Amino acid sequence: MELKNIINAALNQSMSYAEYMELMESLTLTGKASGPKQTEALVNYTKLNKQRMTRLVKTISLDDAARKKVAKVNAPQTWLIITESWCGDAAQSLPLIEKLAAANELINTRYVLRDENLELMDQFLFRGGRSIPKLIMLDDSFEVIDTWGPRPQAAQMLFDNWKKEETPRPYSEFSVELQKWYLQDKGQSTFEEISEKLVDCCV
């Protein structure tokens, strides 16, 4: 199937951010996680991510530099985001993506779950892996403008260094370090990297 057809199929069954948050709430209340795997760890991550996303919406503000760049977008765009409820990087990024999009009424966001859209995911691999979240920026003809994800460059360096450890720490241990980085960064790297792509592609 051609990429455009794959994208259109995903958009046809996509969710708004409000609908995605309703799904997060439902999963939390029923003790489940999105995707085919149901483990205690994934369920716990889902619950924690719901709390993180709710907090970020209330505490993180879009900086003026990013706001000015987003305001320059002068044609409709759709931002298609691939995610899952248990993904810690998604929990840190999705509320920020929403704040960026909300700064320009021409930008519309839609969300899909990775494991329900593997054909789409496999068109946007990161180093050969199905890493999420993945932001796919589309123009008004649903052609790909650019992509971003799964995490800011500095966070990716932390991840890469963890993978290079002679005896890598358990992910549960490393994730604490990664979440501390997100907390200290306050969304600035995500805002800057995504808004820079808008300047490069759309102005």
Rank of each mutant, 00 (worst) to 15 (best):
F126Y: 11
L23R: 12
D160S: 07
P168D: 14
L106A: 11
K99I: 14
E25G: 10
T109K: 07
E143G: 03
L29H: 11
Q184S: 13
K180L: 08
N44D: 14
I132W: 00
M53W: 06
N104Y: 07
S26D: 09
W181D: 09
S34V: 12
R55L: 11
N44I: 04
D200T: 13
L183V: 06
P150D: 06
E22N: 15
A9K: 14
A18P: 00
R130P: 08
Y20C: 07
T167D: 13
Q92D: 06
V112T: 02
N12L: 12
S61T: 13
V203K: 13
L138V: 12
S141L: 12
N8K: 12
D185K: 01
D115V: 06
P168F: 14
L100H: 09
C202H: 10
F174R: 10
Q153K: 15
L27A: 07
K50M: 14
K186Y: 03
N49E: 01
R110H: 15
G128H: 00
E116T: 04
K134A: 08
K47D: 04
S131D: 02
M21F: 04
T83L: 13
K164L: 12
K164E: 13
C87R: 02
V144H: 00
S93D: 05
K50L: 15
R151D: 14
S93Y: 05
L42G: 03
N104S: 05
I6D: 02
T167E: 15
D64G: 03
P133R: 02
L29W: 02
S172Y: 09
Y111V: 06
V57F: 08
L125M: 09
M15L: 15
S131I: 08
S93G: 02
G31L: 04
P152W: 08
E98Y: 07
P168K: 11
M1P: 10
A41I: 13
E165P: 11
D63F: 03
